[in-house]
Amino acid sequence: MENSLLNRIGVPRLIISLFLAFLVAAAFSYGLPMGQIFSAMLTRFGMNALLVLAMIPTIQAGAGPNFGLPFGIICGLVGTTLAIELDLRGFPALFFAIAVSIPLGAVAGWLYGLLLNRVKGQEMTVGTYMGFSIVSLMCIFWLMAPYNSPEMIWPYGGEGLRVTVVLDGRMEQLLDRFLSFSVGSVVVPTGLLLVTALCCVLLWAFLRTRTGLAMSIVGANPRFAEASGLNVNKYRMLSSIISCAMGAAGIVIYSQSYGFIQLYQAPLYMALYSVSAILIGGASLQRATISQALIGTFLFNALLVIALPVANVAMSSDISEIMRVIISNGIILYALTRKEVGGDAR
């Protein structure tokens, strides 16, 4: 019993937390602006939380982490660009974008679910490549789509969307600033965190309904589920629909906080970040909880936020981009090769 606390936290999370604490201490000693850093941590946590929570339905239903998340994300981008095209501003723009994104994401999830039910056991690889293909396919869409808003199309030529569309004055940091307050020099993005909390409560409630339980049963043991009269494919499909819809809404929230939407190749690796965040949080490929998703999102993003400035100062040269890639991909590699992933540990 003496190491039960350690078991509960898990060695990986302990190491990452210690590393984080070390970096925070280092940042302090270098005299970095801690207020800014902590604000950025909170904001990035809120930005990514819904995208990471989107992993839970598919993991619970036995389809593994949703590597096809870019499919949902693209639906969210379509929703956001439509809001700009209609020249909406403020909360109407945000709500419109989310309201359009969710049904589009659900349709994407349905299509993705059709695919997933044909490739049981290989969801991760197939999902990754499907995500890649969709992102590439959508590059053509972004070029050809008949958008007219001068804020989005290329200034010259006048056709096709830009790579980065600025949300300034439309919905930039709308949620972040909502009811926002400062503690010392730390700015708390209240609206963003409230939305995250709301999503958590909704997901929590859903997972405890009869349908949510059915999804977990299907994921835990498909044979058992069949013997309990459940249609395994139906619930796998449902999980994929919910996950992609969450991804679609998630990217709208992400973008409003980020201040830009990034089109073309940008959604390519979004799934990987979310997958690594939830794995770092202690989820396995078969089982994930909301708290694991939240812990993982925080650790992953906090590390990303603080590692760059510290590395920059410590190395006294501009290697931030290199460090960013090493750190973020290192975390992904670590998370995916983690030994304790798998069911028999207990």
Binding site: R210, A220, N221, A227
Partner: peptide
């Protein structure tokens, strides 16, 4: 172990799982 149980779930959930659904 293959059909009868959800091995990585609690005893209580195993006992009630089918009843919640059916």
């Amino acid at each position: 172990r293959g059909t009868g149980l959800l091995l990585d779930n609690s005893i209580e959930f195993n006992i009630v799982a089918t009843a919640t659904q059916v």
